[in-house]
Design a protein around this nucleic acid. Structure first.
Length: 779
DNA sequence: CAGTGAGCGAGCTTCCGCTTGACTT
C-alpha cells in the first residue's frame, strides 16, 4: 500500500509524476476543480456576508469518491495543484471535501514537470495559503454576481436566454467597436510613384526599383510630376548600409500558439487546443494552457545540445524570456516539446504539423540572433529635391531564421519581401526604364480573427488561457457574433506610366477587402452591447478586469478582507441593475423607427424580437394588431431602409382557393412557403414568392403530396406509433419521436412489427438521450 | 441528418475558471 497520496490537477501529469516518485507514492488527479458554486441558482448569501454555497457537481462525484478512499488509506496527502489562485483554491476545496485537516497534509508546488523540480518540491512543503484562497473566492463570487444579475436584465429588456459577464461582454464590445470603425471608415486615394532604373551590376544588366518618398493626393499632381520626369536625369545621391540584428520570438504560450497555428496552419482556436491536448496526453508536449514563456533548465540544456549537434555551436544561444503580460500567473512552463531531441513525431497529419510548429518555435527561441545588412539607396533627380528610395536586405548570418520565421499579418503592399539590391555607388548615373504612378487607397482596420481577438484579450489581461477558446465559442453560441467570409468588392484604379518618353494611362480593376474567417457582430450583439454600455459602463470598461485583479491581489497579500471588496462592489453595482431592469421606456431597447408605411400611414420599426431581429408595422396601442416580419439574413437593424422592410410585409399573400381551401404564401423560419389546408410546402429558390401564381402553388402542393405518399412505406394497425418511412437517406423506422436505422440487408417492406420493436429495443433510446445532452451543453 | 412553418405570450434561460470525456451515424 502506498504511504503517500499526491493529488495534481491533470491525469496526464499524474502519470508522469508517478514515474518520478517511485513505489511509496500514489499520484491521482482531481481533474481541475472538484467543487463550485451550485449550478442554476445564485448560491451566494448576500445577507450573510456573501457566503458562497458550494456543491460537488454531478460529474465530479466519482473522482471525489475515489480520492476520498485513497486519502483515507494514505499516511500523508500531498496537495500538488498548480501554484496560482485557482490551484490554491483547488487544494483548499480538496482539504475541505476530503476532510484532510486532521491528517498529515502538505501543500507543494512546482512549475515544471521534471524529476528535479518534483523532488525539490517534496523537500519544501508548506501549508495552504488561505489569503490566496480568499482571493479566488472573491473572483468566483464576483463573476457569479455579475453574470447572474446582468443576464436576467437582458432577458427582460431584450430577449430570453441571452447572457452577459465580465469577460464575454467586453469581448463582444471589442468586435462591435471594430465593426463600427470599419463601417465609418472612409477610404482616401493617393498616387504612389515607383521608378525602375537600368543598372549595370558587375557584368550583368539588372533593374533597381525605387519608390518616391512622397505620394500625390490627386491625379493631376501625379501627372505633372511624371511630365517633369520625361527629360530628367537621375543619379545615386546616397548609399547607406547598416547592420541589423533580429531576435527570435519567445516560446509559445496558449495565445501565441493559437495565433500562429491559425496563421500558418489555418486552425481555429478550438481546433488548436484539442490537437494540443492530444499531444499533451501522449506526453509529446508540455501543458498547453499557460501564460508563461519560461523554459525549464532541462529544456534549455537539451535545446542547446540539439542545436549544437545539428547546426553548429555558433547557432546556439541560451535565452531566458520573461512575461510582461498583465495578470499572468505563470503556474506552468511555456508550451514546448517534452523531448527536444524529437524533431518529428508519429501521429495524425495535423498533430505532426502542430508539433513541428512547437518544436521550431522552441528551438528558434534558443538560437543566435540573425544578422542582416540593411541597404538604403537614395536617388536624386536633377533640378528637383524629390528623392526616390530603395531599401534592401541581405542576410549575413541566418541564425534562428534557419528554423523559424514568425508570420506577420500584413496586407500592406509597401512591405514587399525584403530583397538584395544591385551594387551601385554614389554618383552613378541611372537610366530610367519606366516610372509609374499607381492609385492606392487607405484601408479600414482589419476585423478580428478568433486568434487575433484572443491576443487582444490577453493584452488587456481579460480571461485566462483555459477560457480563451470557450469564450470565443460562447459569444458565437449566443449569436452575438459570427464568423464570416467576406468576398470583398471590386474597384477601379488608375495607373499612369511614363515609358520611352511617353505618358500613358490605364484603368485597372482589383478586388479588395476580402476577409476570411473574420468575426462580425450580429444585430443582437450590437443591441446588447449598446444597452450594456449605456447601463453598466463600469463593467464594460476595458480596465474593469485589471482593476478588480488589483483588488484580488490585495486580498491575496492579506491587505484586504474579501467580503469587504465584494460588499463595496455590490453596493454600487446592484442599484444599477435595479435601475436598468425597471427603466420603462415606451419602446424596447435597440428599436429604430424607419418611417411610415405609405399605404396605411402606420409607423414601421425594426428591433430585436423574441426570435431575433424583426420589423414591426403599427404599434401595440393601435386597435388593429401590429404586423411582424422577420428580417432577412443579410439585413441589419442599423442599416436597413424603409423600402427594404416594406418588401417583407408583402407576405403573407393569399393566392386563391384550391379544392375548397385557401392557398397562401408565407415566410417562416426556414424561408418562404405555400400553406394549404394545414400542409406546408417550401418554395424552391428558383421561384419568387412575391410573384408565385396559384397554378404554380398547386403544382408544388401536388408534388409534396406525392412525395408524402412515397414517404410512408408501412404502418402497423396494432401499434400506430411504429412507422417505416422513406427519408432523404433511405428507409428508416420512426417510433415515438425518435428515428432508428434499418440494419443492412433487411428489406424494409418485409419487416414485421416485432422485428421493428426489436430494432428499436436494440438501438435503445440512445439517440434521444445523446441529443438532450448535447443541447444541454450547448447552453 | 431524417422535419420544421407562431407571433412577440407562461415554461427556462445565465457567469468564469480548473480539468477531461464520449453519442458517432
Amino acid at each position: 500500500m502506498a504511504k503517500n497520496l499526491v493529488i495534481v490537477e491533470s491525469p496526464a501529469k499524474a502519470k508522469t509524476i508517478e514515474k518520478f516518485l517511485g513505489a511509496d507514492y500514489k499520484v491521482l488527479s482531481s481533474n481541475g476543480h472538484i467543487r463550485d458554486l451550485k449550478e442554476r441558482t445564485f448560491s451566494i448569501d448576500i445577507e450573510h456576508n456573501f457566503e458562497p454555497i458550494y456543491e460537488i457537481p454531478a460529474g465530479k462525484k466519482a473522482v471525489v469518491a475515489s480520492l476520498k478512499s485513497e486519502a483515507n488509506k494514505a499516511n500523508t496527502v500531498w496537495l500538488a495543484s498548480d501554484e496560482d489562485r485557482e490551484g490554491e483554491a483547488i487544494s483548499w476545496h480538496l482539504s475541505e471535501v476530503l476532510n484532510l485537516k486532521n491528517k498529515d497534509t502538505k501543500r507543494i508546488v512546482f512549475h515544471e514537470i521534471t524529476k528535479n523540480a518534483i523532488l525539490e518540491a517534496i523537500q519544501q512543503p508548506r501549508s495552504i495559503n488561505l489569503n490566496l484562497v480568499k482571493a479566488q473566492q472573491a473572483r468566483r463570487v464576483l463573476d457569479r454576481i455579475v453574470g447572474f444579475e446582468l443576464s436576467p436584465v437582458l432577458w427582460k429588456r431584450i430577449k430570453p436566454a441571452l447572457s452577459a459577464g465580465r469577460v464575454q461582454s467586453v469581448t463582444v464590445r471589442l468586435i462591435v467597436e471594430r465593426e463600427r470603425e470599419v463601417q465609418s471608415f472612409h477610404s482616401t486615394a493617393s498616387y504612389r510613384v515607383v521608378a525602375a532604373f537600368a543598372v549595370q551590376d558587375g557584368r550583368k544588366k539588372t533593374e533597381l526599383k525605387a519608390e518616391l518618398g512622397q505620394r500625390f493626393a490627386t491625379e493631376q499632381e501625379a501627372r505633372q510630376f511624371l511630365e517633369g520626369c520625361k527629360n530628367a536625369s537621375f543619379s545615386v545621391t546616397g548609399l547607406e548600409k547598416h547592420p541589423l540584428k533580429k531576435k527570435p520570438a519567445p516560446p509559445f504560450t496558449t495565445s501565441t500558439l493559437q495565433q500562429e497555428a491559425n496563421r500558418k496552419l489555418g486552425l481555429s482556436v478550438s481546433q488548436t487546443m484539442s490537437i494540443a491536448q492530444r499531444l499533451y496526453e501522449d506526453g509529446k508536449i508540455t501543458y498547453m494552457r499557460t501564460d508563461s514563456v519560461n523554459l525549464s533548465s532541462l529544456a534549455l540544456n537539451t535545446a542547446k545540445k540539439v542545436i549544437t549537434e545539428t547546426m553548429g555551436a555558433e547557432y546556439a544561444k541560451t535565452r531566458r524570456f520573461t512575461t510582461h503580460q498583465k495578470g499572468a500567473q505563470e503556474a506552468h512552463e511555456a508550451i514546448r516539446p517534452t523531448y527536444m531531441a524529437n524533431k518529428t513525431i508519429e501521429g495524425k497529419p495535423m498533430e505532426k504539423k502542430l508539433y513541428d510548429l512547437i518544436w521550431k518555435r522552441t528551438v528558434a527561441s534558443q538560437m543566435a540572433d540573425a544578422e542582416v545588412e540593411k541597404t538604403t539607396i537614395t536617388i536624386g533627380m536633377e533640378g528637383s529635391d524629390r528623392k526616390f528610395v530603395a531599401e534592401g536586405e541581405t542576410i549575413v548570418f541566418d541564425g534562428f531564421l534557419k528554423v523559424y520565421r514568425e508570420t506577420v499579418e500584413d496586407e500592406d503592399e509597401q512591405n514587399e519581401e525584403a530583397r538584395a539590391l544591385p551594387t551601385v555607388k554614389v554618383g552613378d548615373a541611372l537610366q530610367q526604364k519606366s516610372i509609374t504612378a499607381t492609385e492606392r487607397f487607405t484601408q479600414h482596420p482589419p476585423r478580428y480573427t478568433e486568434a487575433g481577438l484572443v491576443s487582444k484579450l490577453e493584452e488587456l489581461g481579460i480571461g485566462r488561457p483555459s477560457t480563451y477558446a470557450p469564450t470565443i465559442s460562447t459569444i458565437q453560441k449566443r449569436e452575438y457574433v459570427e464568423k464570416v467570409n467576406l468576398p470583398g468588392e471590386e474597384r477601379r484604379y488608375k495607373v499612369l506610366t511614363l515609358k520611352d518618353g511617353a505618358l500613358s494611362e490605364e484603368t485597372k480593376t482589383e478586388r479588395y477587402g476580402a476577409e476570411k474567417n473574420k468575426l462580425v457582430p450580429t444585430d443582437v450583439g450590437m443591441v446588447v452591447n449598446d444597452f450594456l454600455m449605456a447601463s453598466f459602463p463600469d463593467i464594460l470598461d476595458y480596465n474593469f478586469t485589471a482593476s478588480v485583479e488589483g483588488q484580488f491581489d490585495e486580498i491575496a497579500t492579506g491587505h484586504k478582507e474579501w467580503t469587504q471588496t465584494i460588499a463595496d462592489f455590490y453596493r454600487h453595482f446592484h442599484p444599477e441593475v435595479e435601475r436598468a431592469e425597471k427603466a420603462k421606456e415606451a419602446h424596447k431597447v435597440g428599436e429604430r423607427l424607419l418611417g411610415n408605411d405609405p399605404r396605411s400611414g402606420k409607423p414601421v420599426y425594426v428591433k430585436i424580437g423574441r426570435y431575433g431581429p424583426i420589423a414591426q408595422m403599427g404599434s401595440a396601442e393601435d386597435e388593429e394588431k401590429p404586423r411582424f416580419a422577420q428580417l432577412k439574413k443579410n439585413m441589419s437593424i442599423e442599416t436597413v431602409t424603409l423600402d427594404e422592410v416594406l418588401e417583407l410585409f408583402k407576405l403573407p399573400r393569399t393566392l386563391g382557393q384550391y379544392e375548397g381551401h385557401e392557398v397562401t404564401v408565407g415566410a417562416g423560419r426556414f424561408g418562404p412557403y405555400v400553406a394549404y389546408n394545414k400542409t406546408y410546402v417550401s418554395i424552391p429558390k428558383t421561384s419568387d414568392p412575391l410573384t408565385l401564381t396559384l397554378e404554380e402553388a398547386v403544382q408544388l402542393i401536388q408534388a409534396k403530396k406525392e412525395a408524402d405518399q412515397k414517404k410512408h412505406l408501412k404502418k402497423f394497425d396494432e401499434d400506430p406509433d411504429m412507422e417505416i418511412l422513406n427519408g432523404r437517406y433511405g428507409p428508416y423506422i420512426a417510433y415515438k419521436g425518435s428515428n432508428y436505422k434499418i440494419p443492412k440487408g433487411k428489406d424494409p417492406n418485409a419487416l414485421t412489427l416485432d422485428e421493428c420493436k426489436a430494432i428499436v429495443e436494440q438501438q435503445g433510446s440512445k439517440p434521444a438521450t445523446a441529443r438532450r445532452r448535447t443541447t444541454r451543453r450547448a447552453r
